[in-house]
Write a protein that binds this DNA or RNA. Structure first.
Lengths: 156, 156
DNA sequence: TTAAGTGCAAACCTTTTGCTGCCCC
DNA sequence: GGGGCAGCAAAAGGTTTGCACTTAA
């Protein structure tokens, strides 16, 4: 069984409501809202604008709670993914990166400087559905990364 | 510097001409066409129809040359990637998979059974170019994976 | 001849897991 | 109070690398 890389397109999290969504999901699963989870989530949802990998997140978390463990960060991100509050993306640098589930979007990545631009394009999405349907698939998610050179790097 | 996941769209390798392309590239780089490289390439280009990961390839290679090492397979696939004869794809199962560079295509992946269908869609490609251009990017490659449930799995 | 390549094992990196003690509910 | 959780360290993959020997050119 291959893990899906994105959650459903339904959910939308903005800075304001992740706490409530997290609480509801955690309670429903019979889990607990610990200080560590809260801290990691605060930083993940409110301080990190970039597409952070676990280590980047861990470093930021550690500054506020020096005793926190690497494993806790991993376990929390896994939990967030299961709760559809985060999704993982792989841009090919050897680490898994995470981002909050917001409106769905894809990525445009500069292979020179690593810059990541988010975009969405309804027309492409529609065509993707068509393609999937033509092979008898029911589409649940997708990932699309466009690689190229950004304006800045092209002129250097 | 992030590695590109696909080579340029120019090259096209079919069963017949990988040998010559490989030879030319290897000679140009001042490298050597060893027995091990040839064996690995034969299996990669002519025996493996699936999107194989290193281990699957290694197992097949080992059957024909029991003394071959894991590292050699890795190094050869890296070489093929640099020569634009192979590309790596990540479908999220934790391993890197490789496929011969042929005509460009994308992937439709069943998250239940792992089945991979290749497809291409010119209209999507054209829209991708448009999107990239609108952000000032010059597109060199892309990867697109659609995740869903295949007909077979949907009916079970 | 000789520099690149191979095989092996060890190193590396990212991610997961087992376990003991801790703390949320 | 009890079961999920945190922290730690060790394990577990997948991939890379250092080194001494081998081999293609």
């Amino acid at each position: 069984m291959i893990h899906q890389q994105r959650g459903s397109k339904v959910s939308e999290v903005n800075a304001g409501n992740w706490r409530e969504k997290l609480r509801v999901q955690i309670v429903n699963k019979g889990l607990r809202l610990t200080q560590q989870r809260l801290l990691i989530c605060e930083i993940f949802f409110e301080e990190l604008t970039e597409h952070a990998n676990i280590d980047e997140l861990y470093q930021k978390v550690k500054r506020r709670n020096g005793s926190i463990g690497y494993a806790t960060v991993y376990r929390t991100l896994k939990l967030l993914t299961e709760c559809d509050l985060a999704t993982s993306i792989q841009i090919g640098d050897g680490t898994t990166r995470f981002e909050p589930v917001t409106e769905h979007h894809d990525h445009l990545i500069c292979t020179e400087c690593g810059k990541i631009v988010e975009f969405e394009n309804d027309e492409i999405e529609r065509l993707q559905e068509d393609v999937a349907a033509s092979f008898g698939f029911i589409l649940t998610s997708h990932s699309m990364e466009l690689f190229g050179t950004c304006q800045n790097c092209a002129s250097n």
